[in-house]
Design a protein around this nucleic acid. Structure first.
Lengths: 236, 236
DNA sequence: CGAGAACTTGAAAATTGTCAATAATGGTGG
DNA sequence: CCACCATTATTGACAATTTTCAAGTTCTCG
């Protein structure tokens, strides 16, 4: 489906039409959970839907986004396995959820939060981590340049790097390069970084020209100098 | 203290020097809490400090912000009374906290979260609300124009407006105007909205020129046509 | 009342977005 | 397995927005 068409679909706010194959997962610690398997780019729920259930990412990646009435989209979170999402403060979901890859989810009834103390704790830990990610993302969206945004995005995909213990570009222990899989289209990256698709493309071309990355496939980038990218990310 | 000086102070990352007058508040539901009174523009904690305690806003307004190494600042949250802040996923605070007005806070030992179930629930509700606000703010920072950002900011200060039940500009029941107190300098507003101080100033002047607002004092704005501002906020 | 801080305004520069055309990618059917 | 073609991505030229730099002006508070 073309981007524009999906856009219209999403803006409509109807319930997810392509409901996944769902099967009762049974009981786990006294909770009834349901396992859902989703194809890539399938909608879990729409902003405005009744928030009757919440989910935990089991495998795959899920993206949360919001739309403005004129179609502008902002991806607000990208969720890895282990993350809980779809818990709403009110009765409705505040954003839409769509899978990026083939994904398996665990669904819970929203009342389960009240009942289970371990779940409550897990939820709290999860929310706190998400909150810190959102803070970082606010810095990115509010204060970083295009090249800093794209570099930060790439660093996100490098495990154990870019954090506090990241020591400059000198101390190259073994290899300073890595292949990363984007799992997102340029449009999705742009909507996540608050840029246009053209700007994202231009920045990647620029990094390519400088020899910092090699684009092996559209959704597969080899970072040749991780520390070089890290330095461009604005955190140094 | 001048902005630049505060900036340097903050970047330094030392413990808050101007500790407020603190007095033991006694026990409340078996929890030991401490009441803190803070002057306007005093620091509660710095990013990177040990997150030994967390807080609840009792009265006043608190701002959370992060700094990039070169001094760029992003205000990530503005907290009203009732909000819990300073609960960290790790051992350190992920952002700095500074009061905007004279503020009274309740401080808790971080271990209290584990112990008290009511507190845990309150925390969850609070985090969910903050999360939705952060999502909205990501949309603002990533996708809205300067005038939309400033208008959104002003609408934040109008109680019960700008939400879902906000019906266009026609249905003017009684009064479509309101005085709002900013409690933030232009610099703080700019750092919250991801703009420069000059852009914020220019947008406000533009709204003034169009008759939508009247600046009564630097920190006091009369919104003459609430619905007009609402329509500029990008949510219609 | 005065002085520093905060705010406003203007002109020019920089960055990013828009529009339009071209290129490449990768999935599908023959 | 290959060729085709819709989709996705890249690139260029230009426009729009926002930032930067540099004065001024206006507050505010001691």
């Amino acid at each position: 489906m073309a981007y524009a068409e999906r856009m219209l679909d999403t803006a409509g706010g109807q319930q997810a039409a392509d409901l996944p194959d769902a099967l009762v997962f049974g009981l786990k610690d006294g909770m009834s959970t349901t396992a859902h398997s989703h194809a890539p780019h399938s909608v879990v729920f729409y902003e405005g839907d009744n928030a009757t259930r919440f989910y935990e990412v089991d495998e795959g990646i899920v993206m949360l986004f919001k739309l403005l009435p004129d179609g502008r989209r902002q991806v607000v979170e990208i969720l890895n396995p282990g993350t809980i999402f779809g818990v709403s403060a009110g009765d409705l979901y505040d954003c839409s959820a769509e899978t990026l890859t083939r994904t398996s989810l665990r669904a819970f009834d929203r009342r389960e939060v009240e009942r289970s103390l371990p779940l409550q704790r897990h939820l709290t830990r999860c929310l706190l981590t998400q909150m810190e990610t959102l803070h970082d993302h606010a810095v990115l969206l509010g204060r970083k340049s295009a090249i800093e945004r794209v570099s930060s995005f790439l660093m996100r995909l490098v495990p154990q790097r870019g954090g506090i213990g990241c020591m400059g570009p000198d101390k190259e222990s073994a290899s300073d390069s890595l292949d990363v899989v984007l799992t997102m289209t340029r449009q999705e990256i742009a909507d996540y970084l608050g840029l246009t698709i053209e700007t994202v493309s231009r920045v990647i071309s620029d990094l390519k020209r400088r020899g910092l990355v090699t684009v092996e496939r559209q959704d597969r980038i080899r970072i040749n100098r991780i520390c070089g990218i890290c330095q461009l990310s604005g955190i140094h």
